[in-house]
Nucleic acid binder design. Structure first.
Lengths: 226, 226
DNA sequence: GTAGAATGTGACCTGCTGGTCACATGACTT
DNA sequence: AAGTCATGTGACCAGCAGGTCACATTCTAC
């Protein structure tokens, strides 16, 4: 975490620095990020950087903390349209609201997800905690769906979590990658075309998951013994 | 592509070099791969490396070519169990046979997929061709499925391709990552547990896709007007 | 044996990296 | 005004990167 010296800085200066860092991580990832470029782009001296942070990983950790805080505040301000949604409807709302947030902070999301989803695999246990958290939330959702009778109790929960995680990441990556090609990414995401695309993807996922395990067993057996 | 000098080398020496390169790319990706380490690990001089290849990207291109050739030969030696399979059954066979090949060459696959799927996004159009090829194959499959009446004609083909691509990559990544934790990756992949997991994932995908577009429209409208 | 081509070699180059540190500047206290 | 402590600075360091090149060795043809 940043040293006190950094937190004492005037807000504007802090923003210049973290924006330079965000751009750097978004462009080069964590491994290839250059502290030299960060200090050059934020107009501070090399020595100052090391007075503010331990190293570049320290900056990144700070970005993670900022993101988490902002995302929580954002979701606190939003409320699901209906109080009695089905689990999948709720999941859809989470994803879409998350995408709204993402497109409002595309560079930060780009930086963070690049590091977490791609480099993260090779960083050992450094970022494992992050994944476990969102994983637990997904697990809770699918278990709720089972309790509510929306999904067959015999469904493989681990598998369902993997499916939801995969699509969550795939959609996020798709939105970022395609959205960056448009000048007004927010407008693009809100367009009927994109919204429908997200809906369809999630619908295909939902329908696959709703199908009961026993249905699968039947089809599976049939195929095996054919 | 490698220079003639490299191709003139005795096979054993060539293998030592490309194995060192594979290990390097698998461990560090393309961007962070070190030619110094490659030459050190393959026991050749720095100068020799540059007599064999233009640069490290040249080596990687060669690996890609080798992989493509070997994979084609492997698939030529295999034949689908039934001559009259459904499209999804065929897709499942392709995926599983592909996984067999992958686990027989885990390091090479690790190296290539790390670069193509992760760094590739930032390499512009260098590796676009690869993706287009496999994409076209998936498209042909889904169009065949429509023709055969296995999938509703109104289904969004682009979306279906994205879904198949996403799962193809996700399963491949899962097998590699988890499989590497086991001493006998081949045995692990062939175990009933893993095979069933792959089956289930593909089954969930299949069932989502089989659902007709018109069913979706209905559900979608209902949700919108609620 | 010898000429000439092909192949092999590692010291050396420049440029960038993350990180340090002796010193300069500013701000606040007494 | 003097003293003190936080903040700011950039030249400097060692290490590694990709890449080159003059020279050594080996192979081939005659």
């Amino acid at each position: 975490m940043p040293k006190q010296t950094f937190l004492n800085l005037p807000e504007e200066k802090r923003n210049v620095i973290i924006n330079a860092a965000i751009d750097e991580f978004a462009e080069y990832g964590l491994e290839n990020a250059s502290t030299n470029r960060i200090v050059a782009n934020s107009g501070i001296a090399k020595g100052s950087f090391y007075q503010y942070f331990e190293d570049k990983q320290d900056v990144f950790m700070y970005l993670l903390a900022v993101l988490e805080k902002e995302k929580m505040e954002y979701f606190k301000g939003k409320h699901p349209p209906s109080t009695n949604m089905g689990t999948f409807e709720y999941f859809r709302w989470i994803i879409k609201t998350g995408m709204e947030f993402n497109t409002a902070n595309p560079r930060l999301i780009q930086a963070v997800s690049r590091v977490l989803l791609q480099e993260g695999m090779y960083y050992g246990k450094t970022f494992e905690e992050q994944r476990k958290k969102s994983n637990a939330a997904l697990r809770a959702m699918i278990e709720q769906a089972i309790q509510r009778g929306e999904v067959d109790p015999s469904v493989d929960v681990d598998l369902a979590v993997m499916i939801m995680e995969t699509w969550s990441n795939a959609i996020s990556a798709y939105i970022l990658q395609e959205g960056m090609k448009h000048k007004d990414i927010m407008k693009w995401v809100r367009s009927a075309k994109v919204q429908e695309r997200i809906d369809k993807l999630l619908y295909v996922m939902e329908y696959g998951l709703r199908k009961t395990e026993s249905d699968f067993e039947k089809a599976f057996q049939k195929r095996k013994t054919r």
